[in-house]
C-alpha cells in the first residue's frame, strides 16, 4: 500500500462515517445492541454470583474464585468453537436453530464476559467495609437488606465491572465470528479487509471510539470513588 493510498483510504473512511453510510450505522447499532444485551445478561447473573463469593464463606470458595479468574482470559476463539459445536445443526442445541443469528452472539458474548464481571464485581464487593453488614443490621435491616446495602456501597465498582464487560464483548472477534458469521463491527472489520478497506477502517474508527468512551467513563467512575 502506498502512502497516498493510506490518506485516500482514511479520507474515504471518514466520509463513510460522516455521510451516515447505511452499512456502517447498521453494523454499529447491531454491535451496540448485541454487546449491550450480552453484558446486561452477564451482569444480571454475574453480580449475584459475585455477591455470594464475596459475602458468604463456603467450602471450595477459593477454587471457584480462581476458576472464574482463570476463565477471564479464555481465548475467544476457543469459546467460539465450543459454542459452535453446541449450536450447530448436529450439535446438542442445534434444534434451537440459533447458529448465525444475533441471539447466538449475545449468548456467546454473555458467557465470555461472565467471568470478567464476576471477578471485578466480587473484588468490588469485597472492598466494601465489612462493618457495613453489622451497621445495616443494627439499624434494623434483614439479611437481604444488609446485602443490598453492601451492593449499593459497591455501586461504583459494579458499574466499572459492567463497562469492562461491555468493552470485552464489543471488541472480541472469536465468538462473534464462529457463531454469528459476519454481522458485528469486529467481524466486518476482518471480513472487509480485502474487499472494502475503507469500510473496514471506518468501522475500526467507530469501534475505537466506543472503547475509548467506555474506558473514559470507567476512569471517571473510579475517580469518583472516594
Amino acid at each position: 500500500m502506498h502512502m497516498a493510498d493510506f490518506w485516500q483510504i482514511l479520507g474515504e473512511a471518514f466520509r463513510l462515517i460522516l455521510t451516515g453510510d447505511r452499512t456502517v450505522y447498521q453494523t454499529t447499532l447491531l454491535s451496540l445492541l448485541v454487546s449491550g444485551t450480552a453484558t446486561l445478561l452477564a451482569f444480571l447473573w454475574g453480580v449475584p454470583i459475585a455477591a455470594l463469593i464475596a459475602l458468604k464463606s463456603f467450602r471450595g470458595k477459593l477454587l471457584i474464585k480462581s476458576m472464574f479468574n482463570a476463565l477471564v482470559g479464555i481465548p475467544t476463539v476457543a469459546l467460539g468453537l465450543i459454542l459452535y459445536m453446541l449450536l450447530s445443526r448436529s450439535g446438542p442445541l442445534g434444534f434451537l436453530g440459533l447458529l448465525y443469528t444475533p441471539t447466538a452472539i449475545i449468548i456467546g458474548e454473555a458467557v465470555l464476559v461472565t467471568p470478567l464481571i464476576i471477578s471485578l464485581a466480587s473484588s468490588a464487593i469485597e472492598a466494601v467495609d465489612p462493618e457495613i453488614i453489622s451497621l445495616a443490621k443494627t439499624l434494623g435491616a434483614s439479611e437481604s437488606q444488609a446485602s443490598t446495602a453492601v451492593l449499593r456501597e459497591a455501586a461504583n465498582g459494579l458499574m466499572v465491572a459492567g463497562i469492562m464487560g461491555f468493552n470485552r464483548a464489543i471488541s472480541e472477534l472469536g465468538v462473534a465470528l464462529m457463531v454469528g458469521g459476519n454481522m458485528v463491527l469486529t467481524t466486518r472489520i476482518a471480513a472487509q479487509i480485502n474487499y472494502d478497506i475503507a469500510l473496514s477502517l471506518s468501522l475500526t474508527i467507530i469501534l475505537l471510539l466506543v472503547v475509548f468512551a467506555a474506558n473514559i467513563l470507567a476512569y471517571i467512575i473510579r475517580r469518583r470513588k472516594a
Partner: peptide
C-alpha cells in the same frame, strides 16, 4: 436496640 461502633461506619 441499636449500636454505634467505635470507628464511624458511614454509608457512601
Amino acid at each position: 436496640a441499636t449500636m454505634v461502633f467505635q470507628r464511624p461506619v458511614l454509608l457512601n
